[in-house]
Amino acid sequence: MKKKLSRQENIYYFSEAAFSLFENWKAGEYRLLKILKDTDRSYVALLEMGGDQFIYKEAREKNRRKWQRFLSVFRGSESKREGLQMFEIRKNGFLGPEFQFAYEKKRASMVIHSFLVYSYIEADELTVKKAEKAFAYLEKIHDAGFLHGDSQLSNFLIHGEEIYLIDSKFQKNKYGALGSAYENYYFELSCPGCSFLMDRSHWAYKIAKKWKDLKEWWVKIKTKRRERK
């Protein structure tokens, strides 16, 4: 649901409780518990509102970039898109943070500021010893016809026996076996010692590996060129 707050301000949410939460935030009725990240790229903080804990996330770099601002005219802000992806994750039966609301401020139809608020998950990062659980959940996502979008091990959390997705660019898998294999290899790169989980003899894995390695090589070439200038 979208609500126009003013000529240049929008909020996205899916329940009246979420909108009330926004009003509490706007009135300053929250408590900052901890700053989790504070860099040029992003700001992330843990807040308490109404006795519950929430994550406030601001994509500073993407709010600031001229190209990202131009693209926001057509696709909205990074905060809006990430929030809707969280909603889709839960809608399709997977576990992840519960989206509360996304705020956008515009100038000349371009988003110049945005942030996202979602429920805090009381969960732990997965160790390499428990990586098999994360990989099994990734395969479950693939079997359902979706992609995680950023399938490194650190983007899976565990609470009890439940696996949760974070920082996911959740989307339909339009690439079939190649899409799944690419995510599997990306997961492997983030998890030293996880190679035994992969079917490394499969044709899709071999192609995905070569493609990913080629992209990494090209990034290094471009970085070296920039450093020489």
Rank of each mutant, 00 (worst) to 15 (best):
K4C: 04
K4F: 13
L5G: 12
I11L: 14
F14M: 05
F14G: 00
F14Q: 14
A17Y: 10
S20L: 13
L21R: 00
N24C: 06
G28M: 08
E29M: 01
R31V: 00
L32A: 01
L32G: 07
L33P: 05
L36H: 05
Y43N: 06
Y43D: 01
V44W: 02
V44M: 04
G51K: 04
G51T: 04
D52L: 13
I55F: 09
I55P: 09
K57S: 08
E58M: 05
A59E: 09
R60P: 05
E61N: 07
R64A: 14
R65H: 11
K66P: 00
K66M: 11
Q68P: 00
F74L: 15
R75M: 13
R75I: 15
R81Y: 04
E82H: 11
E82D: 13
G83S: 11
G83W: 03
E88P: 03
G96F: 04
R107F: 09
S114Y: 07
L116K: 08
V117N: 00
Y118L: 02
Y118M: 12
Y120D: 00
I121G: 03
A123K: 07
A131H: 03
A131P: 02
F135N: 07
L138T: 10
E139K: 15
K140S: 14
L147T: 10
H148L: 10
S154I: 08
L157G: 01
L157W: 06
L157C: 05
I158Q: 14
G160W: 12
E162H: 12
I166Q: 03
S180L: 00
A181R: 08
Y185R: 06
Y186V: 15
E188C: 10
P192R: 13
F196S: 14
D199H: 03
S201Y: 04
S201P: 01
H202L: 07
A204R: 06
I207F: 10
W218V: 15
V219D: 13
K220T: 05
K222W: 12
E227I: 13
E227G: 01
R228N: 08
K229M: 14
